[in-house]
């Protein structure tokens, strides 16, 4: 059971959060310009890596804020937490 450091509320139990999958997938500004394949890339394709992954989490039963998390999926360690719109920490690239 993770202990997640919500950037707005502090450390809280995982049961207060919901996961929103891979982070930094930007919704295309002009979807109509995209081919089926390009749109499918945005819509369906997600990484599922063993190792360091950038994810979105929502403090659903708390402040309702979305934020980003850097997590090592091999040991579930959360390495960093940062707000939406902030640049991802470079040292985990």
């Amino acid at each position: 059971m993770f202990l997640i450091n919500c950037p707005f509320c502090g450390e809280r139990d995982q049961s207060e959060f919901s996961s929103g999958g891979e982070a930094h997938i930007v919704r295309p500004k002009q979807p109509t310009e995209l081919s089926d394949d390009e749109w499918a890339e945005y819509l369906f394709m997600r990484k599922n890596i063993k190792g360091i992954q950038f994810e979105r989490w929502n403090h659903a039963h708390g402040c309702r804020k979305w934020f980003n998390v850097v997590r090592d999926t091999s040991n579930d360690k959360i390495l960093s937490v940062y707000k939406m719109g902030e640049k991802p920490p470079v040292n985990y690239k």
């Binding site: 919901s18 929502n58 309702r64 979305w66 939406m84």
Partner: peptide, 13 residues
């Protein structure tokens, strides 16, 4: 509500 919040906070801040 959570879907709308998601778009508001992450796609259209």
């Amino acid at each position: 509500l959570s879907k709308l919040e998601d778009y508001l906070q992450t796609e259209w801040p």
